[in-house]
């Protein structure tokens, strides 16, 4: 019972200590075995593996269809609307964007009959985004949504990134109120997640902290800010001049800056642990990419 005795001694010494008053020096012999480092090393290894995308570098057909939709058909609609729809073009465009961005994703996603686990992951991430947006309600523009969406895109691919983003935009407005801005927000969040997924798969974006933060900043400032400022301009006025565009971007810049720094902040503190957690879930429950 030698071990037991040493445990008793230890407890007396450990619990008996008071913070300020110094007890008599009692050194515990250090065992020869160092701290369980191989275990730490193993975890680090897992993380290293992750950094290099194991994924195939080739894009799937579905992804191509989505890219064409987003990069060709949507700008085409915007052009068409501005050219032909007269005064009401911006509403035409915003509706066009809802239809075009969502149709391919819906078709693809619904068409392949997603598994229960996929649904759960998307729902959880979207719920985290919504709860995050609600939790920081007192700080305008300081939201973790974009960070969550980017992480979703990096870990679960472009499609999931888009769906999480769009879902956050849609559901959070059930709590904050729907309006003409809903489709724009859904699209902006979605496209940020989508691009994060694509860039990661192509190997252009690594899951390292600095890279994610840079992407997060650029995406929030230029994609989210760019789209949302444009949308408010279109809502207010239908005569678009360089001056009015510039004016709206300048007035929007401080808000976008706060939003972008929030994204950077959240990615800086949370991206690594969050990605680790998601990777563990993927491994543990066989959710590795299809």
């Amino acid at each position: 019972m030698l071990q037991d005795e040493s445990l008793d001694d230890f407890l007396d010494a450990f619990l008996g200590e008071k913070g300020h008053q110094k007890p008599e020096k009692k050194r515990w012999p250090t065992p020869a075995i160092p701290i369980n480092t191989d275990n730490l090393a193993a975890v680090a290894m897992v993380h290293k593996d992750m950094k290099e995308p194991i994924a195939k570098k080739k894009l799937s057909k579905r992804t191509w269809v989505a890219i064409v939709m987003i990069l060709v058909i949507i700008p085409l609609t915007i052009w068409f609307g501005i050219r032909f729809m007269g005064d009401r073009k911006y509403y035409f465009i915003s509706m066009g964007i809802i239809v075009y961005t969502f149709v391919p994703f819906l078709m693809v996603f619904e068409g392949r009959k997603p598994q229960a686990r996929e649904l759960i992951i998307i729902a959880i991430l979207a719920a985290i985004g919504v709860a995050g947006r609600a939790a920081f309600f007192m700080l305008p523009q300081f939201k973790p949504v974009v960070a969550v969406v980017i992480i979703a895109g990096v870990c679960f691919g472009a499609e999931s990134g888009f769906l999480v983003g769009a879902m956050v935009g849609f559901v959070s407005n059930f709590f904050f109120g729907q309006g003409p801005w809903t489709p724009w927000q859904m699209f902006s969040f979605g496209i940020i997640g989508f691009l994060a997924g694509i860039l990661f798969r192509k190997g252009l974006l690594k899951s390292s902290k600095p890279q994610l933060c840079v992407y997060g900043f650029l995406a929030t400032f230029f994609i989210y800010g760019g789209i949302m400022n444009m949308s408010s301009l279109l809502m207010w006025s239908s005569i678009i001049t360089w001056k009015s565009v510039l004016a709206v971007y300048i007035t929007g810049a401080p808000f976008d800056l706060i939003h972008a720094s929030a994204t950077v902040f959240f990615l800086f503190v949370a991206s690594k642990p969050m990605i680790e957690k998601l990777e563990r879930i993927k491994k543990k429950y066989g959710l590795i990419e299809r």
Binding site: Q3, S6, L7, F10, L11, A13, F14, E17, G19, K22, P23, K25, K26, R27, W28, T30, P31, I35
Partner: peptide, 17 residues
């Protein structure tokens, strides 16, 4: 953590307990 006991010892002993 202001104890004079090494952290490693403390962790190991508590875990043992």
């Amino acid at each position: 953590y202001d104890s004079d006991i090494e952290k490693k010892t403390a962790v190991d002993k508590i875990a043992q307990l």
